[in-house]
């Protein structure tokens, strides 16, 4: 195995593209080192991207924020601007692992790990976040929602790395929230999760909604039909009940050691309902 601390994104992409063997990109390393320890992978090349200038930075851009791929989630959580604009995205990112893991793990890494249960991903998808990708053929932008391709898989091509994630600007009266279910209060992988992003009208009714569910399908699920139920309402009890049912309807989870199909499905609906209420309150809704 070789370890290379890359100096530029271009160098990183070139090294990864040229390596015929198994490669891993190292940002926070909180997934990669676990894979190494378990013997799950034996990479021939590890490219550290933390040493690339700019990748550890958060910059304001067009009313939104560009989050470097090597920004540790603890650092993200300390950024008042991002927290104010996208609290749901940040709370998802900040739920991953322990304080120790937070000091290292990144949103881009969580996305590239390809787990359907990644806590950072539903919030990003609900936010319509966009990943900037550097590859052998240059740079491209891609909606975060299009990156996951199944457990452990992404749509990134050989040699491509994510260099940053862009969180767009928000209008007034807009906010988001993320909730996950775990058996303990910390240190678990999400058994089901839900991110809800809302824009409200002046009267507190929902103008636009985007909902993403985690750990209930091979990739994060965008629950558009469910989101439409919220539009025009102030999240009254009946609306929330049918919203939860609609979320459950798009779940396609597995039975495993962490939860049953029935449990994941039902809990995803419950969490979506609760997250919608939090997002609504954060956006200045009446509740």
């Amino acid at each position: 195995m070789r370890y290379v601390a890359a100096k530029t994104a271009k160098e990183a992409a070139g090294l990864l593209a040229a390596e015929p063997g198994v490669t891993r990109v190292l940002a926070g390393g909180t997934d990669v080192l676990v894979q190494l320890k378990s013997g799950m992978v034996e990479p021939d090349l590890i490219v550290d991207i933390k040493t690339i200038p700019g990748l550890g930075e958060i910059t304001a851009e067009d009313g939104g924020f560009r989050i470097g791929a090597a920004v540790a989630n603890a650092v993200l959580g300390e950024h008042a601007g991002v927290v104010a604009l996208w609290p749901g995205v940040v709370e998802g990112a900040n739920l991953i692992g322990s304080t120790q893991v937070q000091g290292r793990c990144t949103m881009a890494g969580n996305l590239c790990n390809g787990s359907p249960a990644g806590d950072a991903v539903p919030g990003l998808v609900a936010a319509n976040a966009v990943a900037r990708i550097a590859g052998p053929e240059g740079t491209r932008d891609c909606p975060v929602a299009e990156i996951p391709a199944g457990p452990g898989k992404t749509t990134l091509k050989k040699g491509e790395i994510i260099t940053s994630i862009y969180l767009p600007a928000r209008p007034e009266r807009a906010s988001d929230a993320y909730l996950r279910f775990i058996p303990r209060t910390e240190m678990d992988i999400a058994v089901a999760s839900a991110a809800v992003s809302l824009e409200l009208n002046a009267d507190g009714t929902v103008k636009a909604a985007r909902v993403a569910l985690g750990a209930v399908a091979p990739t994060v699920v965008v629950a558009d039909a469910a989101a439409r139920i919220l539009v025009g309402t102030t999240l009254d009890g009946d609306t929330l009940a049918s919203f939860a049912k609609a979320c459950e309807a798009v779940c396609n989870p597995i039975d495993d050691k962490r939860g049953t199909i029935a449990f994941r499905t039902r809990t995803a609906g419950t969490l979506a309902k609760r997250a919608a209420l939090i997002a609504h309150a954060r956006a200045g809704g009446s509740k």
């Binding site: 058996p183 303990r184 209060t185 910390e186 240190m187 678990d188 992988i189 050691k257 962490r258």
Partner: peptide, 11 residues
């Protein structure tokens, strides 16, 4: 320790 869940302090 990820999936054999001993209690953590916050529990």
């Amino acid at each position: 320790f990820l999936d054999y869940r001993v209690p953590v302090a916050s529990d």
